[in-house]
Structures are given as structure tokens and as C-alpha cells.
């Protein structure tokens, strides 16, 4: 069943949304069949594409809108929101990355 879902999340990472969390977002997003975009102000990135995600340049404290449309949209947004809520805790290696 087609759905749409949206949720606003905050980047709570000292180093911002650098390549490691972007990679985890892309890997998580790819598990879902729906289209997923992440919006920061006037920029929108395909959540399944690393190059797109890196163009968000989302620093610590940035607010992002997760938007999904299509099959499993709600589950996709929930899964991505959980990454932000846990501050990517299992994967963020800290300062030199």
C-alpha cells in the first residue's frame, strides 16, 4: 500500500553528518522499496545516494526533514529517525573521520 511519511530530526553529532553516518543512512534507506528524501532548508537529497547525502553539509544542530513516499514509507522514516535519535551511536567513530 502506498503511503507518505515525514518526520523532522536534529543532527546531534559534534562532527556533523559526515561520511560515516551518511553511509549508514544510505544503507538503511536501501532496505526499503519507497522513495526517501532528506531535506535541509532548500536542499533535498536522495537518502539512498551517498553523493546526494554529502551535499546536505549538515552541521551539528541542523534540522532535517525525512520524507518517504511509497511502500513501507512509515517504516523507512521510523528506521532513519532511530539512527538520528541514537546519534548513530553504534557507528560514529568520533573525531578523526
Amino acid at each position: 500500500m502506498n503511503q507518505t511519511a515525514q518526520q523532522t530530526v536534529r543532527v546531534d553529532l559534534e562532527q556533523g553528518l559526515h561520511m560515516v553516518p551518511c553511509s549508514l543512512i544510505a544503507r538503511t534507506a536501501e532496505r526499503f522499496p519507497c522513495e526517501i528524501h532528506i531535506q535541509k532548508e532548500d536542499r533535498s537529497a536522495d537518502a539512498k545516494t551517498m553523493l546526494d547525502l554529502l551535499t546536505l553539509s549538515a552541521e551539528n544542530g541542523s534540522m532535517l526533514v525525512l520524507q518517504a513516499s511509497g511502500e513501507e514509507a512509515r517504516a523507512a522514516v521510523d528506521a532513519l529517525a532511530r539512527l538520528f535519535e541514537s546519534n548513530f551511536s553504534d557507528t560514529d567513530p568520533g573525531s578523526n573521520c
Binding site: 553528518l17 559526515h18 551517498m50 554529502l54 553539509s57 552541521e59 573525531s95
Partner: peptide
């Protein structure tokens, strides 16, 4: 190390 914003902007420009 003390300029994480510049790092993100560099990655943004490249990507």
C-alpha cells in the same frame, strides 16, 4: 580537527 564545518563543506563541494 577543529574545523568540522569546513570538512563538511569540502565534502559538499566535492560531492
Amino acid at each position: 580537527p577543529d574545523l568540522p564545518g569546513d570538512h563538511l563543506r569540502g565534502l559538499e563541494s566535492i560531492s
